[in-house]
Design a protein around this nucleic acid. Sequence first.
DNA 1: ACACTAACAACAATGCTTGTCAACAAGCAA
DNA 2: TTGCTTGTTGACAAGCATTGTTGTTAGTGT
Lengths: 141, 141
Amino acid sequence: MKGTEALTTIFREQGLRVTPQRQAIFRLLEGDVSHPTVESLFDRARADMPTISLKTVYQTVHDLEALGEVRVLDLGTGSVRVDPNVEDDHHHLLCTTCGRVRDVPVEFDGLNVPIRYRRDFTVDDVQVIFRGHCDHCFDRT
Amino acid sequence: MKGTEALTTIFREQGLRVTPQRQAIFRLLEGDVSHPTVESLFDRARADMPTISLKTVYQTVHDLEALGEVRVLDLGTGSVRVDPNVEDDHHHLLCTTCGRVRDVPVEFDGLNVPIRYRRDFTVDDVQVIFRGHCDHCFDRT
DNA sequence: ACACTAACAACAATGCTTGTCAACAAGCAA
DNA sequence: TTGCTTGTTGACAAGCATTGTTGTTAGTGT
C-alpha cells in the first residue's frame, strides 16, 4: 500500500474525496502487518475519532481494494481481513486458536493445476492458507 | 465418506441416533462431487421430506465432520460447502462466476512454509484454492 | 413395550456486512 | 470567499448464513 500522501493524490485523481475519516484509516493501515479485521480497524479509528461509523470503514476498505492498494482476505475466520501488503506476492499462515495471521513469501515452484484438471478452466489466482497454532497457543491447549 | 450402512453403524457406536432425516442426508452426500452448500442439501432433502429443517442439515453435517466423514470448506463464497471426499488428499478449483468447485489432486511437492517463517508455529493443514473461470462462464463475459 | 434421552421442527437470535436516507462537507468555478 | 453540486457520513435497519432455544417427537438398549 502506498503512503498517506500518495493515497490522497490517488483518491483525488479518481474523483474520490479525502475525508479525515479516510485519512485516519490510511494511517492505521500504513505498515500494519497484523491483517486486521474491519471491526478492529473500526475500534482503533474510534479511539481518535469517536463518531466514525463502521460503514465508513467498510466503504474505505473497499475503495482501497478497488484501487488495488489493499487486498481483502477471507480466511474462514468469520470476518474479513485487510492486508495492506500488495507489493510482495505471498500466502498466509493462520493460527486457528488466536486468529493471528503471518505472511509467508512464495518460495515453492510448480504450484499449478495439472493440465488434465485445468482443461476448460482459466486460473486467475492461487491462494494458499497454512493453518495451525503458534507455540504460544499450543502451550495453553 | 463411507456408505450409508457403515455410517449408520458408526453413528450408533458414537451414541448418535440414526433418524430418517440423517439417512436422507447420508444418501444425498454419498458420491456427490458437486461440493454442495448446506442450503442446497436442504433443498434437495426437502423434496423427499418436506418438514426437514435447515438446522437439522447443519447439525448432521457437523456431526459428519466431527467423525471425519466429510470436510467442511469455506472458499470465501459466503456459505460453507460440504465435501464428502476425505479419502483422497486434494485441493480445489473454484469458478468465481458460477461457484462450481472441482477437485484437484495434490501433485506439487515442497509445499511447505520456509523454516524461517515456520518458527514458533505448528502447521496442521494446508489449503490451496485456485480461483478462475470455467470456459462456459468465460465465454459469457 | 418402556423409559431414557438425543434429535426434531419451529422460531428467534446472532454476527458480519450492506442498503437507505437526511444532513453535511469537499471540491470546483466564478 | 461564496455558493453550488455531488459524494460522503453516520444512525438505523435490513440481508444473509449460521446458531441458540424450547417443547415435543421418536430412536435406542433393556
